[in-house]
Simulated scan of single mutants.
Amino acid sequence: MATRIRPSSKRCTVIGGSGFLGRHLVERLVDRGYTVNVFDIRQAYELPGVTFYQGDLCDKLALVMALKEVSIVFHCASPAPGSDDGALFQRVNIDGTRTVIQACHEAGVQKLILTSSASVVFEGTDIKNGKEDLPYAKKPIDYYTETKIKQEKLVLEACSKEKGFLTVAIRPHGIFGPRDPQLVPILVDTARRGKMKFIIGDGSNLVDFTYVENVVHGHILAAEHLKADSPLCGQAYHITNDEPVRFWDFMSQILVGLGYSAPRYHLPYALVYGIALLLWFISLILRPLIQFKPTFSPMRVALAGTHHYYSCARAKQDMGYRPLVPLQEAVVRTVESYPHLRNGE
């Protein structure tokens, strides 16, 4: 009987490696001496020493090809939050993750690190210094959150020391940084349309925003500390900048840094949330006839008007996590990376 070759601990595959977080992760892994495969629906760039595999997440045969002789898999693929395409979230986050787990078993992968989300415990109400033992949201605020909960459960329940397959979930919150296709471009687009004049609520709510390099650092620490005798097995970990900031102060720093006016006028949170709910309901009714998408969804209003920040104590204790880039430096780096979005450009 042939002896199975044990994959090198420095060989990994990044699923979703063409995305915002995925690409930053790939670049950092290469810097640290890893041999990296990327599996994604598209190839967005080229990098020396990185092998790209294009394919559908639900295509197990294609996935197995990208996982051969690999010991670690980082699963970063997910549709962006904010979409109302429930079928897409189901296909990628749930069906696709089942396929990833099956492919890992077939290819002999030893470790699976999932990019989850702190939103899996968020129901639209205040969370202050939330720990990982908070219950999953019983009423998820959108399809993204609903499917990320199911996805995280699938991955953590698949952890098996007996089978030599170890899993861990990283829960970042409010990822931002250079090449971010969501937060900064959407913020600037909203400002250019004259819709960033209002602060929802009294503006005192604290929120975690996490620089992409710190999220990447958390993923790599998790991979390197995930062993059969470690507390990481089958657990979730919050990864943030560990510097809660007023939501509207953060947004204002980005806007002002790019030459736009900061929001000044206050609107009552309950009023805006109620209007968002009404518009969301109307959009559901009208969907068969016309495509109507409100600027502010209930989810966005909740994220903008409530406290939601999380403790990194477990990550500090179990894998020595510390943010590499402080928040203010991260904001400066991010603003400088978007010269084309400056006011007047």
Rank of each mutant, 00 (worst) to 15 (best):
M1P: 08
R4L: 15
S8M: 10
S9R: 14
K10T: 14
G16N: 05
R23Y: 10
H24R: 13
H24V: 03
R32N: 15
Y34T: 09
T35S: 15
V36N: 08
Y45K: 02
L47Y: 15
L57F: 06
C58V: 14
L61W: 08
E69N: 15
I72R: 03
F74N: 01
C76K: 10
S78L: 06
P79F: 11
P79A: 09
P79C: 09
A87V: 13
L88H: 11
Q90V: 12
Q90N: 12
A103I: 04
A103Y: 01
I113G: 00
S117I: 07
S119F: 06
G124T: 04
T125E: 13
I127P: 09
K128Y: 04
N129H: 11
E132L: 05
K139M: 03
Y144R: 10
T145Y: 01
E146I: 04
I149T: 08
K150L: 15
E157H: 08
C159R: 02
K161S: 10
G164V: 04
G164L: 07
A169W: 03
I170G: 02
R171L: 15
R171Q: 15
P172T: 04
H173N: 08
G177Y: 11
R179P: 00
D180S: 11
L183N: 12
L183R: 09
V184C: 01
L187G: 02
V188G: 02
T190P: 02
R193W: 07
M196A: 10
M196L: 11
M196S: 10
K197M: 09
F198D: 02
F198P: 00
G201S: 12
N205E: 13
N205P: 01
V212T: 09
V215A: 12
H217Q: 14
G218Y: 13
G218E: 11
H219S: 06
I220M: 14
A223D: 07
H225F: 14
S230I: 06
C233W: 00
Q235T: 07
Q235Y: 01
A236W: 10
I239D: 05
N241E: 05
N241V: 03
E243W: 07
P244Q: 08
P244C: 07
V245C: 09
R246S: 11
D249Y: 14
D249W: 13
F250I: 03
F250P: 01
M251I: 15
I254R: 01
I254L: 14
L258E: 03
Y260A: 00
L271A: 15
I275W: 01
A276G: 09
I282S: 05
L284A: 11
I285Y: 06
R287I: 01
A302H: 06
L303Y: 07
A304D: 05
T306Y: 05
Y309E: 04
C312G: 03
A313C: 05
A315P: 03
K316P: 01
R322C: 11
P323E: 06
P323S: 08
L324P: 06
V325N: 05
V325F: 05
P326G: 03
E329N: 12
V332H: 08
P339D: 03
P339C: 02
H340V: 00
H340A: 02
R342L: 02
N343L: 04
